[in-house]
Design a binder for these strands. Structure first.
Length: 434
DNA sequence: ATCCGGTTGTA
DNA sequence: ACAACCGGA
């Protein structure tokens, strides 16, 4: 039996190869009620499951319920002699897999991971986990990763009863993701290093959703990049894949950092109460994209409309919540996870902690993003803002980023950035000296 | 020990 | 230029 989780593909799949070596394979997915409130990405999950089921002519068995009940039940129904999985390294997945293994009377066999390098496998000179990206990345490259695994012939066991996958308007499949990947390699990799920071340009690989659900394995992408090893652009994209692996590694070593400050250096930090009458409307304006800062609002509206936000803008909008509105990062991390199709607890929540200054790579605390400067720099023609903020479409060029009288119905800035920057710096100073 | 590096902003 | 951090080699 192969129990699929975040590995919803048939190619380059070590656990599938291991299962197929045992004989005919029962392909299973369990819709876990504990993850049913996972926001937008439940739709993305259903889209991935539909394409996976199609790829095996409908053999996929979908059950709904607690995996610790459903998986043992399927084993006894089918007489499976082992349950094969790809390892899961996030806190919930690790707890769930322990419960399932304990409830089974056949082995739960874990083969492979969703990463090129398994979380926990790279340690520093003192045999400790890395706490900064650049050092981790160097060691990660040095360790290296295996080539993609060859396709295997699988005989699927059919006609095991299951439930239907819910309908969804989304369409996601490994084939479409790889098609996008090859288009990206052909058309956009040659400008990646700079265009990746440009939300107005379609310059990123857009592989985040495919990686989240395992439609493709990062090893597949890294193998293609390895064939372009002399390209600085390929190396830069390798770095971005490494950020994903680094944060998975950090979460593996520090499961609590999913929702708590990784470092306690700012334990005494004073935050605004998001439920208070003064702050609640500001947080709501942030969520809805009407802060009066065009690049922030464009990003928050892109998130609502598309379930995706450009990474540069994720940093800008996160910095605004944390440093201009002084709200503790988990509120923002929760909001992103609710709306992002690619929402991943390790990358998302540690990215937020990076911005907040409580995580790895402790950015010097005085590094506060200026939303206007960031807009001018990374959306230089203003095209990104005009795409998502219709109220500003009558303003041409970079002037969309500037405050002024011509902005019509568009809101006035809800805070004075220069003032809030100083407040943030004072609070960081105070927290550091406690 | 000492130096490097870092998704930055303001003067 | 400077702010003025800190893990890692």
């Amino acid at each position: 039996m192969l129990w699929f989780r975040r590995d919803l593909r048939l190619d380059d799949h070590p656990a599938l190869a291991a299962a197929a070596a045992d004989g005919p394979v029962v392909p299973v997915f369990v819709l876990d009620p504990a993850l049913a409130d996972a926001g937008a990405r439940v739709d993305a999950l259903h889209a991935c499951l539909r394409s996976l089921s199609d790829a095996m002519d409908g053999a996929l068995v979908v059950r709904s319920g607690d995996p610790a009940v459903e998986i043992p039940r399927l084993v006894s129904e089918t007489g499976a002699t082992a349950v094969h999985v790809t390892g899961d390294f996030a806190p919930y997945g690790r707890r769930r897999d322990k419960r399932v293994a304990a409830a089974l009377d056949v082995p739960l066999v874990s083969t492979g991971t969703p990463y090129a390098v398994p979380p926990g496998a790279v340690l520093n000179g003192k045999d400790q986990p890395y706490q900064v990206f650049s050092a981790y990345c160097r060691a990660w490259r040095e360790r290296g990763w295996p080539s993609p695994v060859d396709a295997v012939d699988v005989s699927w066991v059919r006609d095991v009863a299951g439930v239907d996958v819910p309908e969804t308007p989304l369409s996601l499949s490994p084939e479409a993701a790889l098609e996008r990947w090859h288009e990206f390699l052909d058309d956009s990799l040659s400008a990646y290093s700079s265009d990746r920071d440009r939300p107005d340009v379609d310059g990123t690989s857009r592989m985040s959703i495919a990686l989240k659900f395992g439609l493709v394995h990062p090893r597949t992408l890294l193998a293609d990049l390895g064939r372009r090893a002399r390209s600085d652009h390929a190396r830069k994209l390798g770095d971005e894949l490494c950020w994903r692996e680094f944060y998975a590694d950090v979460l593996f070593h520090h499961p609590r950092s999913a929702w708590h400050d990784l470092r306690d250096a700012l334990a005494g930090m004073e935050y605004a109460d998001p439920a208070s009458p003064e702050v609640a409307p500001l947080v709501e304006a942030w969520r809805e994209g009407r802060t009066g800062f065009p690049i922030v609002d464009a990003g928050m509206r892109q998130l609502r409309e598309e379930g995706w936000m450009h990474n540069r803008v994720r940093m800008i909008t996160a910095s605004f919540l944390v440093k201009d509105l002084h709200v503790w990062w988990p509120l923002g991390a929760r909001h992103f996870l609710d709306l992002l199709y690619d929402g991943d607890i390790a990358s998302n929540n540690h990215g937020w902690q990076w911005v907040a200054g409580t995580g790895t790579d402790a950015a010097p605390y005085f590094r506060v993003f200026n939303p206007t400067t960031q807009g001018r720099k990374f959306d230089p023609q203003g095209d990104y803002v005009r795409r998502y903020v219709p109220e500003l479409r009558h303003i041409s060029g970079a002037a969309v980023h500037e405050p002024g009288d011509q902005r019509g119905d568009y809101p006035e800035p809800i805070v004075d950035h220069a003032v809030e920057r100083r407040v943030a710096l004072e609070r960081y100073q105070a927290a550091r000296s406690t």
